[in-house]
């Protein structure tokens, strides 16, 4: 907890946070690629958490696919905090239509790992209940 508070008071973390937030609202679709390339591959959990939430906020097919259908990213992240935070953001979406489509595609597709499919199935059940 102390480490988390100390990083959130860090000037450079605030700078990274602002850049990720700007990419969340940037109308340019290339923003998703930047977030995926830099943010989701960061070694810092807090940065991956921010990135996943930003991708969910965009609520686009490509951005949602990154956090739902990729192993080690978003809901499949090794960090429980990152995975739970992404799920929470998905549940908070006003329009869940696109997220449900991506989840169904992930569940029905043969190309994805069973672990990824299982996570997608669980999240879909939660979203159906919410």
């Amino acid at each position: 907890m102390d480490n988390k508070n100390s990083i959130k008071n860090n000037k450079n973390f605030n700078k990274v946070s602002n850049i990720i937030e700007s990419l969340a609202i940037n109308p340019n679709p290339d923003s998703v690629a930047v977030l995926e390339e830099i943010g989701t591959n960061s070694s810092i959990d807090e940065v991956r958490e921010l990135t996943s939430r930003a991708l969910v906020k965009r609520n686009e097919h490509n951005s949602l696919s990154v956090v739902i259908a990729n192993r080690g990213k978003g809901i499949n992240d090794m960090s429980t905090v990152v995975a739970m935070s992404t799920i929470n953001e998905l549940l908070s979406l006003e329009n869940k239509e696109e997220a449900m489509k991506v989840l169904e595609n992930t569940i029905s597709s043969e190309t994805f790992d069973e672990e990824v499919k299982e996570n997608a199935r669980s999240v879909k059940a939660l979203m159906a209940l919410s």
Binding site: I7, N10, N12, F13, K15, V16, N18, I19, I20, E21, S22, L23, I25, N26, P27, N28, D30, S31, A33, V34, E37, I38, G39, S42, S43, I44, V47
Partner: peptide, 30 residues
């Protein structure tokens, strides 16, 4: 204001270098 300003920038040519730089500085701090 800063977020709104950066949201108008090009993601690859402008925002990506900024993010890389800030992330490197953060990792160094940590």
């Amino acid at each position: 204001r800063e977020i709104a300003k950066m949201a108008k920038m090009d993601p690859h040519s402008e925002v990506k270098p900024m993010l890389k730089e800030a992330l490197s500085a953060l990792e160094a701090d940590m």
